[in-house]
Each structure stands twice: as C-alpha cells, then as structure tokens.
C-alpha cells in the first residue's frame, strides 16, 4: 500500500484531448507498463506514486481525466485543489495541439491558485508528426511552463515529466510551508502537509509505493 513516509501529498491532474495518450503516460510512469489495449477513460481515473525530489518525498495523487469535450463538466470539478497540471497533446494530432490553449484557459477560469504546469507532446515514436518541436516550445513559453516531448510507447522522457514537475512542486511547497508555519491553519486545505511525519514507519522508496 501507499501509506509510507512522505513529506507532501499533492494533487496532480492530467488534461488533454481524447486519445493523446494520457492514460498510457500514467501507466508507464506508475506501473512501468504500456498497452495498446487500454480502453478510453470514462469519468476520472486515479493513481498514486511517490516521487523523490532531492531529499524530499512527494506523494502524487494523479487524476487521469476523460478527454472528450462532453466530459468537461465532470472533469472540471477536479481542477479545484490541483497543485500540478500536465497538459498533453499528441504530436500526430494537430487538433489536440490547437486545443491545448482551450485546456489552459479552462484551468485559468476555474482556479485562481497558482499551479505548477508542464506541457507534454506525446507519441514521439510516430513517424507521422504534425506538430513541430518549436511550436510546442513557443506555446510553453507563452504560458511560462516547461515543455517536453515523450513517447509512452517507448518509455522515452516519461520520468522526466514528473521529475521536472516535481522540482517546481518542491519549490512551491517549500514556499507554502513557510507561509503555513507562520499561519498554522491554511484556509484552502487544498494540499496537506505530511500527516504521517510522526508515525514510526520507515520511509519507502519512490518506486515501490504505488
């Protein structure tokens, strides 16, 4: 089980059009698996993984959302309280790239909190590229977020998504932690400082805790 030691518990959501590979990215990251046979996500799926960032352990509670537009009213309720957001598009689907800004705007509309985001162009393994690297970089720059191209199929750069996101989350959480220590009760309750610090359990590694 995932009840080992961690420093922070953080909610992360994965957004993007249907069929861009959100579930495959998560399954590769959390379970080291890839399957051509995953069913389309209905509603919201959930995974847990502990990420080591330098001397800290961040427990990621990752919400994998359905990409079809009609599910927006369901998935939007999950935006609240998210500390990290992974925006995914497919390098072989121009529309999915064009729609990224829509996803970013929907986040901006529904939350006033500062979130750590990353832009991911998936399906790097395919020969039929429709979105150039420079375009992804430009978009990421516009919204001031890191950018990475990945292949869930070949497990290329998947860990990097979470490492880079983790770095930014750690900086933010440490800043928040300072604020919290000045003001014991956070009003938002949107992230939790580790509630198991006082337990006697041995810390677990980031790899075996899912």
């Amino acid at each position: 089980m995932s009840l080992g030691y961690y420093d922070w518990l953080v909610k992360v959501i994965v957004l993007g059009d249907s069929g861009v590979g959100k579930t495959n990215i998560l399954t590769q990251f959390c379970d080291s698996k890839f399957s051509q046979n995953y069913t389309a996500t209905i509603g919201v799926d959930f995974k847990i993984k502990i990420l080591n960032v330098q001397d800290k352990k961040i427990k990621l509670q990752i919400w994998d959302t359905a990409g079809q537009e009609r599910f927006r009213n369901i998935t939007q309720t999950y935006y609240k309280g998210a500390y990290g957001i992974i925006f995914v598009y497919s390098l072989i689907d121009r529309n999915s790239f064009n729609n990224v800004e829509g996803w970013i705007k929907s986040i901006l509309e529904s939350t006033t909190d500062e979130v750590c985001s990353i832009l991911v162009g998936n399906k790097l393994d395919s020969q039929d590229r429709r979105v150039q690297t420079a375009e992804g970089e430009k978009l990421a720059q516009k919204y001031n977020m890191p950018f990475i191209e990945t292949s869930a199929l070949e497990n290329k750069n998947i860990q990097d998504i979470f490492d880079r996101l983790g770095q930014n989350l750690k900086i933010r959480l440490e800043n928040e932690g300072q604020k919290v220590s000045n003001n014991i009760h956070t009003q938002s309750g949107q992230f939790k400082l580790n509630q198991e610090v006082n337990q006697t359990e041995q810390p677990t590694s980031s790899c075996n805790s899912c």
Binding site: I42, G43, V44, T75, T77, Y78
Partner: peptide, 17 residues
C-alpha cells in the same frame, strides 16, 4: 470517494467499464 471514479463509470457504461 467521489462519484466520478466509480458511480459515473458504472452509469455511463452500464457496468461494462
């Protein structure tokens, strides 16, 4: 537990998911 992770799926796929 939120509905979206279980009841919504059961309803939208009539248990098939």
């Amino acid at each position: 537990v939120q509905n979206e992770i279980w009841i919504t799926k059961l309803i939208m796929t009539l248990f098939l998911y």
